[in-house]
Structure formats: C-alpha cells, structure tokens
C-alpha cells in the first residue's frame, strides 16, 4: 500500500506546507506573461533613456504615451473581453472609423453633443451586438462574424462621407485640448476617459459574475454551460462591450484629430490584438488581465515614441511589433504546454 499512500499524499497540499514559491506559482502562474510585459516595458524605458541620453524618462513623455494612445487603450480593453472568451474582434478599427464619422457628421449637422456622443456609442454597440448574435446564435466563427463587422463598419464610414469631416464642436475639442497639469505630469480628458474605462473593465472582469463567466467561457465553454452559467448572454455581452469601446475610441480619436476621417483605423484592430496579446492575455481565452492589456498598449506606444525620437523609419514599428508579438506567443505557447504537461 505504500506506493499508493505516497501518490495520494502528493495531491494533498495540506499535508506539508508547500513552499512560498510553490504557493505563488499555483496561484499566480497565469500572471507570468503580464509580468513579462511589465519587464519589457521597463527594458524599453531604460533602453530609451540610454539611447536618447536621458531625454526619455520624463513626465511629459510618459504622459504623452497615454494621451496619444488613449483610443488604442480603449480598443484594447474591449478586445480583452472578446479574447478572454476565446473569440476575436476584427471589426474594431473600422467601427471606430464609422462612429468617428457618424459623430462628426451629426455635429456638423448642428446636433448637440448630447445626441452625437450617445449615437456613436450606440452605433458601436449595435455592430458589436450584430457580431455577437452571429457568433452565439448562428454558430459563425468569431473571425468571420467580426470580418463582416469590419466590412460593414468601413463601408458605413464611407457612406457617411467619402472625405473627412472637420469637427468644430467645443465640447468634443475640449476633450483633447484641455491639459490638466499635476506637477510635471499632464493628462487630458481623453486620457482620463481611457483610464476610467480600464478601471470599469477591471471591476467588471474581476468583481462581477458576468466577468467571471467571461473567464469561465474562455476556460471551457462546455463546462461553463454545464455549470449553469449564462453563457450566451456573456458571450454576446463581450462583443457588445468591444463594439461600445470601439464607439468610444471613435470619439477619442475624433477629439484627438479634430476630424472624422473614413480611412481611420485601417489595421488598428491588429494593433489592438497585438497589445492585448503582448499584455499577457492568451488568445485561446480564459487567461489574461485588462491591466495587462494596458501594459501592452504602453509597450506599443513606447516603441512608437522611441522610433519617433530616433527618427527611424516607421517601417521598424511594424517589424518590432510583429517580432514582439511572435516572442509573446511563443512564450505563451511554452506556458500552456507546461501546464498541460503537469496534468
């Protein structure tokens, strides 16, 4: 009987107090990729500081990171919900362009902000709902359903207008032009909106049943259903949230560029996906953090800033982001392989 008793003892963590490292790993192993992202961010900062001779780590540079990438951060937050369920949303770039155009058009027609902004958010939510319904009720793969959303958003953006529409509404311009200074740090209302979005998302994902259902679906949709969770509602909800975030990003980008432009956001969905993955969210779903996605966006923004500072070709941006994405998926792959091997 000796052998059996021994194997049983191993599976009972209570027998011996496991080491702290073991406890930590068994609790937070899923956070390792996000830690890696933080590590890369720090490396980038240090690298920037060294190459740019102390000109990089300054409050203004870091403030601008957030201000310049506020729209991407909001997109990445929405994308995190979808990817956590094991799906993907390719539509966000063009939905952002569409809602931006819609808002600019409504404002140009003389409608008040109180109508234009809700219309933008609802427009985004509607396309999200459309994708979610295709995925949940028609069994369409998320890739294809959101591809339809991508086409739809882009086409609608051009239907609103073929050329850019200037925005002269004070309230919208205020979002970007106001600079709130705290010491040497600067933030705009757009930046605050982005941070609030992150905070709300983190709350929803970690402290509500809806959020936990999103994680459960990503872990195993079948299990989630058998556990009696409201799977359909949560899955559609994820796409609606992503669409709404795209609508909000449309507002932020319009404020940032003072105009709606139908060609905005071509390929931005890929940047958002890259940021989410770099931030440690597994593309297979179920593991990841919205704060990680924020780190991912900051990594993205930092690379962009460094390239600008160095005056290097924009081409490097794409190459470096591609390489980082590769690095992270290989790391994730290794982590998943290890956790499978342990079982």
């Amino acid at each position: 009987m000796a052998a059996m008793t021994m194997t049983r003892a191993e599976s009972r963590p209570s027998d011996d107090g496991p080491s702290r490292v073991q406890t930590f790993l068994s609790r937070h192993g899923g956070m390792m990729p996000s830690f890696a992202a933080v590590f890369i961010l720090v490396l980038l900062f240090i690298g920037g500081e060294i190459f740019l001779r102390g000109d990089f780590i300054r409050p203004l540079t870091i403030s601008n990171l957030l201000i310049d990438n506020a729209y991407l951060l909001v997109l990445a937050v929405g994308m995190t919900f979808v990817i956590l369920t094991g799906g993907i949303d390719l539509s966000v770039g063009s939905v952002m362009a569409f809602t931006g155009m819609l808002g600019a058009k409504l404002l140009a027609e003389g409608l008040p902000v109180g109508v234009a902004v809700p219309a933008m958010l609802l427009g985004g939510a509607a396309i999200g709902l459309f994708i979610g319904v295709l995925v949940q009720y028609f069994g369409v793969q998320p890739f294809i359903a959101s591809l339809a959303g991508l086409f739809l958003g882009r086409g609608l953006a051009f239907i609103v207008s073929l050329s850019s529409i200037k925005v002269e509404n004070d309230a919208v311009l205020w979002l970007q032009s106001t600079r709130i200074k705290i010491g040497d740090w600067v933030i705009t209302p757009t930046g605050i909106i982005a941070l609030v979005t992150v905070a709300i998302a983190a709350f929803v994902l970690h402290l509500t049943r809806f959020g936990r259902t999103i994680y459960a679906i990503g872990g195993s949709e079948q299990s989630a259903r058998l556990m009696g969770l409201k799977v359909g509602r949560a899955k559609i909800g994820a796409y609606v949230i992503s669409g709404t975030c795209a609508g909000l990003a449309g507002l932020l980008l319009t404020a940032y560029s003072n105009a709606g432009y139908p060609r905005n956001g071509i390929g931005t969905e890929l940047d958002a996906i890259a940021a989410v993955v770099i931030g440690g969210t597994l593309l297979t779903g179920g593991r990841g953090f919205v704060l990680g996605s924020m780190i991912g966006v900051l990594v993205y923004g930092t690379i962009k800033t460094i390239i600008n500072f160095m005056g290097a070709e924009q081409a490097w941006m794409q190459i470096i982001v591609g390489a980082l994405l590769l690095l992270f998926i290989v790391v994730q792959r290794a982590i998943v392989a290890r956790s499978e091997g342990r079982r």
């Binding site: 994680y215 459960a216 872990g219 195993s220 989630a224 556990m227």
Partner: peptide, 10 residues
C-alpha cells in the same frame, strides 16, 4: 467539467 483556468474556490 470545471474550468481549469480558474481557482479551486472559484
């Protein structure tokens, strides 16, 4: 039929 990506308690 549980979710292995979540904690025991959850």
């Amino acid at each position: 039929n549980l979710c292995t990506n979540l904690t025991v308690g959850e």
